[in-house]
Design a protein around this nucleic acid. Structure first.
Lengths: 113, 113
DNA sequence: ATTCTATATAACCCTTCAGTTATAGAATGA
DNA sequence: TCATTCTATAACTGAAGGGTTATATAGAAT
């Protein structure tokens, strides 16, 4: 997967509220598929599909505990998107700074032109 | 829009490489739709659709300059998703710390049990 | 008025996606 | 072995997404 494809996969995975809820649940620790499915008004296969999307994006990984396949959250993929977003934040904050500077300049020169 | 719906819209908007490229272009300043479309192997209506998605997510806004509708990047939506991601990063980094502590503990007690 | 330029909208195609039910497979336990 | 539990897969459906072309609209210029 190219970096761009990884961003595609990660942002796509994060774009669904069910998947974000799954991640929220996993923040509290490893959970099996059944436990994960329980609070949702949705079938088990639907949850399995969501897990596949999350796994493909590298946002979760899965272990083995007898018949269970416990899921845990992974941080690497998140690091990649936060890195990407940081670039934009830098520019945006830069714009603010430039605007602030402009306003300060206008203020300083008030009435002098 | 609920906060969850805003996250849906923002992550969906960021999940497409064309739209990320558009944002990258807009980081260098305001651009009209035609200028924006030029480097892409894609029709003008396709770009207009992408812009609508970005606008709906609050990632860009548009002005008016004669017939042109120049686009500029907006930072508010980005702030919301980075805030969301920070929650996950905190937990993830916390997990690393806990793992480090566990390993340090095992190391310290090596052979004593 | 007419025409040219920039953008938006409509109608359509094809693919992907999120869900379903039914079923298969893998590991456990009787 | 047989039944049970947990998870994955297959086949389907309806809705949404990304693209197209053709056309409508808004403003400028002649």
């Amino acid at each position: 997967m190219t970096p761009s494809e990884r961003l595609d996969a990660t942002f796509t995975a994060l774009a669904d509220p069910t998947r974000r809820a799954i991640l929220a649940r996993l923040m509290r620790g490893e959970v099996s598929v059944m436990e994960l499915a329980e609070p949702f008004a949705m079938s088990q296969p639907a949850i399995s599909k969501h897990l596949k999307v999350l796994e493909r994006a590298g946002l979760i990984s899965r272990g083995r505990d007898a018949q269970r396949r416990p899921c845990r959250i992974e941080g690497e993929a998140l690091a990649e998107v936060t890195g990407w977003l940081d670039e934009y934040r830098k520019v945006w904050e830069g714009n603010y700074k430039r605007l602030d500077a402009l306003l300060a300049d206008l203020q300083a020169n008030q009435g002098k032109a």
